[in-house]
Amino acid sequence: MDSLRRALTQVGKVVLGKDEQIRLAVACLLARGHLLIEDLPGMGKTTLAHALARIFSLHYQRVQFTSDMLPADILGVSIFNADSKSFVLHKGPVFAQLLLADEINRATPKTQSALLEAMEERQVTLDGETHPLPQPFFVVATQNPVEQGGTFPLPESQLDRFLMRISLGYPSPQAELALLAAGDRRTEALDLKPALTVAELQQAMAAVEQVHVSADVLGYLQRLLEHSRASGLFVAGLSPRAGLGMLRAARAWALLGGRSYVIPEDLQAVLVPVCEHRLQPVSGGAARSGVVRLLEAVPVVP
């Protein structure tokens, strides 16, 4: 528990003034979920991903997605070795514990789906042979929401693979001053000392699954899901998978809060990052305001 808290503090020293987002990102990883960071360039997306990899001492790979990329560039390729007269698998960058998929929406759908399949199955099939991915396996993908030229926006079904979508946003004035004074943080991210070993991380992930969820909280979650479907705020309501994701995320959030049980506040804290990218508002309005209205409309206690 202390090590987790230490991890949060350390990442906070690198990504300044973004404690909430850091905590969400860590909760996402603890909940065995993939993370999508949506923001403008230069907001610290990559730094955050680096810091996360370092702090949990994860094997880390980074792929800059481009439109001419092929699935093999991510998954790997079998090459015929003339000496041994056999095919030797050259594993792609996906064979890492943490994969940073930068600007995922620049790749063609074919490449995107290759990665997304790996995310879901946590294994890669090449030439009829199935290769399990390392444990644990996280994907942190980033995308630029503004620059849409030459991009292939992720379809809803694939957005669904990400447990959370967060955005960092501009830093606060104090954080920006500190940042300007200290210079680029990316190198510092690389210098971070691991706070947890991989084994400890896996222990924490197991602990998340032990966090108690009372019937009252389940009822509240169910009412939230129900309302997303019945309220008419969205084109389609939340899926049961989204509900399960909410539960995992809330458990992780509770654990980070130092509790062994989930309270409604946990659900409320993760509702926007978990659900916003899965919901399409009926007309006009941003999904975020829709989700916030959802939050305001559903009573905590029936």
Partner: peptide, 11 residues
């Protein structure tokens, strides 16, 4: 919301 008495505390 907390676990009923007797349940093991995780944290």
């Amino acid at each position: 919301y907390a676990k009923a008495p007797g349940g093991a505390n995780v944290t």
